[in-house]
Structures are given as C-alpha cells and as structure tokens.
Amino acid sequence: MSMSHAPERPRLTLGFVPLLDAALPIIAREGGFFAAEGLDVTLSRESAWSTLRDKLAAGLLDGAQLLAPLPLAMSLGLSGPPCDTLAPLVLGRNGNTLVLSHRWAQGMAAPYDDTPGGRDPAVNARDFAARLRHRGAPRPRLAMVHPFSSHHFQLRDWLALDGLDPDADVELVALPPSRMVEALELGRIDGFCVGEPWGTQAAHRGGGRIVATGAQLWPGHPEKMLGVTRQWAERHPLTLTAMIRAPIAAADWLSASPEHRRQARDWLALPPYLDRALDHLPTLPLGEAPVDQRFTALRPEAGQLGAVVEHLARQLGGSLDRNRIDACYSAVHFDAAAHQGCA
C-alpha cells in the first residue's frame, strides 16, 4: 500500500449486532483483510439497534452494521435526532425468516417446498389470517427487531397478503434478535421475523416453524449495510475507502471455496461474536433455500430500497425526497473504493 493511501484513522471501532450478516466485518478482521488495508479494527458487540444508532451518531463508533432502512431513517430524523448518515456498502442480502409457534404454524407449508403454500407466501398468510379471524382475542403478539427494519416491513407485507391490518389485528413488539427464540419458547410471543441464525435456530430447537422468508417477499433485498455519518466520511475519506475495500475482499475470499465458509463459520462462533448461537450450523450457509443468505452484490443501489422507501413514506404520510434517498445510498464511495488500485 502506498503512503498516499494510508488511512487518516488507522484504529477503528465498528459496532455490530450478533447476526450471521455481521460476517463480512468479522471475516475482514479475523482473516486479516482490514489489516491488509492498514486498519486495526475493534468490533464492538451491541445489544440493541438503538444503541448502535446512538453511538454512531455521537461518534462513539466509527462505523456500524446497520439495518438497511436505518441510515435513511436517521438522516430524516425519524429515529433519534436527525443525523446525516451514509450507507456506502451492502453487508448482506436476504437472511430473514418469519417463524410462528406450532400453535399458529400447524399444517402450513415450508417456504420453497414444491407445494402451492411453499411456492406462494400468500397461502400461509391466508391460513394465518383464517385462524386469527376464527380464534379472535387475544391478538397474536408478533415480534420484529426494530421499527426501522426490513423485518418490521416484511412482517407488515406478509400480513397484508391476506388483508390483515398489522396495527389492529396483531400486536407488534420489538425484541433484540438474540431474545426471539427464548421469548417464543416461553410463549411470550406467537411469532417473529428475524435475521439468521435465529430463525433456523428456533426451528432447530423445536420452538416454532419457518413459514415465510424475506427472500420470498423481497428477493435479493439489501438487508444490512455499513453505516457512517456524513461528517465522519468527510473527515476520513481514505479510511472510508479502506473500510469498504476490506469487506469486499472478505466477500471474495468467502465465495472462493467451501473450506472458507467453514472457516468463516468458526470465526463467527468465537465468543466475542455469535458464540453458541451457531451450534446448529456446521458451515456458513450461502444461497441455500429457504433463507438464501448472500454476501454478494455489495454495491449499494438506491433503487433496491423501493419497498423500504414505500413503508417510510406511508409512515410519514407523504412522499420522500428522492435526492435524500440517493444521497444516503449513493454508490460513489463504493465505486471509488472498488476502482482504487486498478489503474
């Protein structure tokens, strides 16, 4: 690396929430891809998305794994005080599962099964709506991870497939991903929408069944993104470039061999990261039905956030400023980072 590209801030702290799609930052750290870019990165495990958001906005974190809707919600001041936030890199696509307790999931098809219910998520949604109307009170309690998450919006979309009103017909609550499985097993919630490994863990432990996936509802959607504040990005352009390049290199390495996926799984299972939450996964599952977790196509595209933008606009009761969205999910930093060193 030439001196002219030495990052302004070689020691960084990046926040993450224990989920499979924290994989790229973890691989970049454990596999030496950050180090190769001249970065010494500490990964800070956070227990809530709000905490991650507040620490990023306050400058206590240099960057963070963020729910894809969050950078826009932060920029618009919908979640915490307004903070202009950029999402220059996709960290993962798909990965969400909708899990229901056995009481509600009985007889429903598994997503992608070769049955009408497996092929079309509306079939299970119709089943759920029929049971709900038949049973009446109390309303089922469904959990998602944060109001500004694809999980929340996908849950709403799934309920709406058979005309249910997510605000009236069910009770929506937010729980951290790592608490979903236990809450379902204890009967405190009737179902949830969450990222991996928590959905397959719930199914593996027997507390519930996967009845739909985010990949079915929003195929290939950007699920997590790297987030930095605009102020930070302007002060540390070379650091940002290095911070984008390392996870790209990690993704290339990951897709190069099945052995790398097993190695990545073992890194993710280290105690500071996901610890025992990966016990049911012998390797990092990539592109497999029904979850279809992907760590490819990392270039951000504002156009791919269409569903998110629609939900945010509905919440605001109006339309969103196109320029705001384009600025937030701009690929300009990605393109600069990806092309650096090619000349």
Partner: peptide, 27 residues
C-alpha cells in the same frame, strides 16, 4: 443505554398508537 430493551421502547414510541400515553424518545 446498553440494555437490550432499548429497541422495545423505540418501537413503543412509534407503534402503540392506541396507547394514550405514548413514550417518545427524549431528543
């Protein structure tokens, strides 16, 4: 601030429209 319950409160502020005493984020 480190409590995992943070997100539960965040969502109550936005979702519990029928709650007569909505909790809003102190900003």
């Amino acid at each position: 601030m480190e409590s995992p319950d943070r997100d539960t409160l965040d969502s109550m502020a936005l979702l519990n429209r029928e709650n007569p005493r909505p909790v809003v984020f102190f900003a």
